[in-house]
């Protein structure tokens, strides 16, 4: 390899500087709290969190209160943790989002749905569950959070078990 002289070392210095700045920038990113959540962008950070309470906080920036107006329909026992059908319905008004959290999964947040005006606040989907766990459904209605929790027993793991 040839040794560069003249203007080139300067350019190299600048490039190194740019790389350093980029690295510092990236290194800082995970520590910046992002409460963008239930608005429009994909909530990358909330999906990465392991703990359920932290994931709820990252997604919504507040805590939920249990409510009998939120109905979580999930099986008592799931024979296959890879496919656990679940549905949420609610009688609450002004629902803007519904999310599913599985406490014992590697990442608690499973899914978050947004409900524009005119969409009926109910959703059915199928989740993976690593093991027996509490499942929490959170409904955001009129700016407040309401939740329903149910334990689902899993007899065969869904996440690489």
């Amino acid at each position: 390899m040839t040794v560069h002289t003249g203007p080139l070392p300067t350019r190299r210095l600048i490039l190194q500087g740019a790389v350093t700045v980029a690295l510092i920038g990236l290194g800082n990113l995970p520590f910046v709290p992002v409460h963008a959540a239930a608005n429009d962008k994909y909530p990358e950070e909330a999906f990465k969190l392991k703990n359920e309470a932290e994931a709820i906080k990252a997604l919504y920036g507040k805590t939920a209160e249990p409510s009998d107006k939120v109905k979580l329909d999930a099986p008592e026992i799931a024979e296959n943790g890879g496919v656990v059908p679940m549905a949420v319905t609610t009688t609450l008004d002004k629902v803007t989002s519904i999310s599913f959290f599985v406490a014992e999964n590697p990442n608690a947040l499973a899914a978050s749905y947004k409900f524009p005006d005119g969409t009926i606040p109910a959703v059915a989907n199928r989740l993976k569950m690593a093991k027996t766990s509490n499942v929490t459904a959170i409904v955001e209605a009129d700016g407040k959070l309401y939740s329903a929790t149910k334990e689902v027993k899993v007899t065969v793991g869904g996440c690489g078990g």
Binding site: V102, A110, A111, S112, Y113, F115, A124, R126, K128, C159
Partner: peptide, 17 residues
């Protein structure tokens, strides 16, 4: 309707609304 999904959604996902 907008869904944000993580890895815990089952293979070949199904959703109803």
């Amino acid at each position: 309707f907008v869904a944000n999904w993580g890895t815990a959604i089952s293979k070949d996902p199904y959703v109803k609304f």
